[in-house]
Amino acid sequence: MATTTALTTEDLSDVVRWQARAEAYAIGRMVDYRDAEMARTALIESSLRRKIERSAIALTIGEATGMSEAQIHLRLSVADRVREKTPLVWASFVDGLIDFNRVRDISATIEKLHRDESIARLESRVIGYATSHTAAELHQWLRRFVQRVEADLAVERAETERADRRVTVTHGDDSMSWLNAYLPSHQAAAIEARLRKEARTSVEPDDDRTVAQREADLLAAWCIDSEAVTSAVDANIAVTVGADVLAGATPGFAESTDGDWAVPASWLAEVIASGSTFWHRIVVDPVTDDVLAHEYVGRFAPDSLALALQFLHGVCQAPGCRVPSERCDLDHRIPHPVGPTTGDNMGPLCRRHHNLKGHGLLHWSTSPPKPPPEPIVIEIYPPATDFVMEYVAA
């Protein structure tokens, strides 16, 4: 009777490892062929003939492997860079521990690094991460590595790319076109979040459009119809940034919590200064992750603070007014930006009394702000190194 052996996860891992080894072997043979051809053509006396034959090396390899010249050039350049700069990474590839996709991403990272010590640090750390994480996780890790190890140069590259921001329109068939925008990541993320939120809220019962169609229609309306953008749409976006970066002591990046994008921290400082966004700054203990402080930077109160103030006061804070707080505006007693967005400096005012206060006709409320408490100094060891910040993009 024939017997069968059940497939195990170890068998699957072996298959993947063999495949990686095969990739490494194939690329190694491509390099060997290229090097042999370079040596052979070096003996050709005619410089024109030598140039022509060398230009055909990638084409010849591509014909033998079924790949394009661009694919061959990519593999050869990756092999040259990784073998020279990070030989341990190449050895891991040859041994089947990492595949070509991971090696290609590592090669692209090496190309961005300009300091030998940074490349050495990458080699010492990347193999362990690459062998235990997915390709997508490795891609994010490599981007963060560049931003943290050579933050000054990464910020320069970001500023250069920012200068190239643009919008392009490509007209296609069937009366449709593509609208493409090359924007700073935090702006694109705010647009994306705003589209997603509004496309899923305030939908009429007879609206049979898909979410994607509503998003497209909204974007078109925002660009064409000025009345479509008269009111702000909240979009919650969270980023993390180092305390030293936030203080301006060192260059660095603010990174989205999902790791998909990061921008120089100074770009977000510009957003804060514009007054069009709202930030939460949460100071977190680096050891226990306990929240040490929650500060608000911006004009508009977040939902949590707004709800707390509604519950606290119940009604409009103008003398004798009984309008329920949920129907009131949240007013800064000391106007923003001089006055902070805090519970002590904010309270509900109905629209009428809010307008009177704005025109200088209402000078006090039933709950005047308390004097600030004496500061409490808390020493933390080790010192906190990260802030978690969230802003609501209007």
Rank of each mutant, 00 (worst) to 15 (best):
I334C: 13
L362R: 13
Q310C: 14
P335R: 14
D329F: 03
D303Y: 02
L361C: 09
V283Y: 03
L349G: 02
C328L: 06
G339W: 00
A308D: 02
T341D: 06
W364L: 09
T342D: 10
G343P: 06
P337A: 07
L312G: 07
H336K: 13
L356G: 00
T288F: 10
H336S: 08
V287C: 09
L356E: 11
W279S: 08
R327K: 15
S304L: 13
R327W: 14
T366K: 00
W279V: 01
W364C: 08
R281I: 15
C316S: 08
H313W: 14
P369I: 01
V338N: 11
A308C: 08
K357P: 10
R333E: 05
P337M: 10
G343V: 01
Y296Q: 01
R299V: 11
W279I: 05
N345G: 08
L349A: 08
S365W: 08
L349E: 01
R352F: 11
R281W: 03
L330S: 05
S365T: 09
H332W: 07
E326A: 15
R352W: 01
A318V: 11
V315S: 09
D331A: 09
H332F: 08
P335S: 14
N355C: 00
P324C: 14
H280E: 12
G343H: 09
V323R: 07
W279K: 06
V291A: 13
G314V: 12
A306M: 05
L309T: 05
Y296D: 07
F300D: 08
M346G: 03
Q317G: 09
H336T: 10
D290P: 12
V284E: 04
V315G: 02
S367H: 12
R333V: 02
C328I: 04
H363A: 11
P319D: 14
E326Q: 13
G339L: 07
D303R: 10
Q317A: 11
F311T: 14
A308R: 06
A308H: 00
P319A: 15
D331I: 04
F300N: 05
N345E: 09
H313M: 12
L292N: 08
N355M: 10
S304I: 12
E326M: 13
D285P: 15
L361K: 11
P319I: 07
A293C: 04
W364P: 00
F311E: 13
H336W: 15
P286W: 10
C321D: 02
H294V: 15
H332Q: 10
D329L: 14
G343I: 02
A308M: 07
V284G: 08
P348T: 10
G343N: 04
T288G: 08
Y296S: 06
M346L: 15
S304Y: 03
L312S: 10
W279F: 01
E295V: 15
V338A: 13
W364Y: 04
R327M: 09
D290M: 12
R322G: 12
W364S: 13
W364R: 11
N355G: 11
F300S: 06
H353G: 06
V284L: 13
L312Y: 06
E295H: 14
I334Y: 12
T366Y: 00
I282F: 00
T341S: 00
C321K: 02
L292K: 04
C321P: 02
M346A: 07
S367D: 13
A306G: 06
P335W: 02
I282S: 00
C328T: 03
P368Y: 02
